[in-house]
Design a protein around this nucleic acid. Structure first.
Lengths: 229, 229
DNA sequence: ATTCCCGGTAACGATCCTGTAACATGGAGC
DNA sequence: GCTCCATGTTACAGGATCGTTACCGGGAAT
């Protein structure tokens, strides 16, 4: 379920899009002019924006540029809609950095696919059910961990911690990050539970516990090649 | 300039693609079968993969799944190529999480645009801020230093000091400047900790420690060509 | 109610990092 | 060559961080 912002002046188009997106289980907001799009985006924080290039008043390109100019809206993916055959639009759209485009008339099915693809792309990490790294295999669907094809019993917290680390291996995860991702602590909390769980994880991983590397003063990291092994 | 891996069994297709990508200033590798793609990807670490779905031997889908299953190759964007009208491929490709697809025959121009768009997209997200100077490679995101591709263990202070120096290499950094940038000392403090850390850094850098040049009476400097070496 | 398991805290110990002090070295100017 | 002073070098101690163990409370299962 994602939140999508649709900007098109034709009501029948927005209705059509809305219909299909609702079917996919998405929430959405609709705007019929290009004015105040950035403000709306800041307000509702959509996961994706569908933007028609032909808008009364303000040009769609202009809207797009405005969105890309602000750091807070820059990372929101944009799918552009353009009238058929406007190759110029197509090229310029891609060159500007749109995430995808569609020419009208389009099949709602096609739109749904594109939207899903773009969303998957940006949220890819959350949708891959299996992660692997060396002898580790993380089955997120079933919340199970396999080490050299041998199942390892982990508690929920331990599992979340490990998969968060493996999700972006090699990267350093701050203590604050981990406490937020795994425990949901949004503010700085003085706790040692992270340390304890790391210890327990390492214990259960046996010799492979060394893959969890502590980065002193910062946090922890999953290394595919542990330094001392 | 990006590195691109092309997998297609038809030589004339790969040649055509290669021609246009070279024009855009990209490097590329070509494979004609789907065997060992993951290994090749791990080896050459491409920024993008162009994958034909119709391959002799191993199915393109299978290749794709293999790539997505491993964390180390999961984040590499993939553009799929499919024969015209194979709507099934198209849908499955997008649903699997491909970053884009093209139906053959396609215009090279179109491909170049798509590739550029995907690259822009992915590089927007990753922004790994890396500094390099000769054999030095500073990965600030992960707080890691590589010397000739060998990781070097540095403490936080050492790392900050070195990256500050490398940030504007050749420039002379005053003691006061460094104490402010690295230690946060805003007023003149009589301390020798800077000297000590320089010493420790040089030690850890071994023969390359000479790149840190002391400017007597003023401060320190990172020189890409040390005077005495 | 009892048992078991899990998650978190507390306390202690080990380790690592950092800054200071004290001494050594080496260059600049006389 | 001598002196002065900035820097190199070494050793050490305090402190911060992390590992480790033990324990307690709550919730689920029996």
């Amino acid at each position: 379920m994602s939140r999508i912002l649709i900007i098109d002046d034709e009501a029948d188009i927005t209705d059509l899009i809305a219909l299909h997106l609702r079917r996919e289980g998405h929430e959405f907001d609709v705007m019929h002019t290009g004015l105040g799009v950035k403000e709306q985006a800041l307000e509702t924080r959509p996961d994706l924006i569908i933007l028609d290039l032909m808008l009364p008043g303000q040009d769609g390109f202009q809207v797009f540029k405005t969105l890309r100019a602000d750091t807070r809206t820059r990372s929101i993916p944009v799918v552009m809609l353009t009238a058929r055959g406007q190759m110029v639009d197509k090229i310029t759209g891609l060159e500007l950095g749109a995430d995808d485009y569609l020419t009208k008339p389009f099949s709602p099915r096609e739109l749904a696919l594109r939207v899903a693809a773009v969303l998957r792309r940006t949220q890819r990490v959350q949708h891959v059910s299996e992660l692997s790294a060396g002898p580790f295999l993380v089955d997120r669907k079933n919340m199970k961990l396999f080490l050299n094809d041998e199942p390892v019993d982990l508690t929920t917290t331990e599992f979340k911690l490990l998969s968060t680390l493996i999700e972006s291996q090699e990267a350093i995860h701050t203590r604050a990050e981990l406490l937020r991702e795994v425990w949901g602590y949004n503010d700085d909390v003085a706790t040692r539970t992270l340390d304890t769980h790391v210890k327990r994880l390492r214990e259960k991983l046996g010799a492979w516990g060394k893959h969890i590397v502590t980065v002193r003063g910062t946090g922890y990291q999953f290394a595919s090649d542990p330094p001392d092994a």
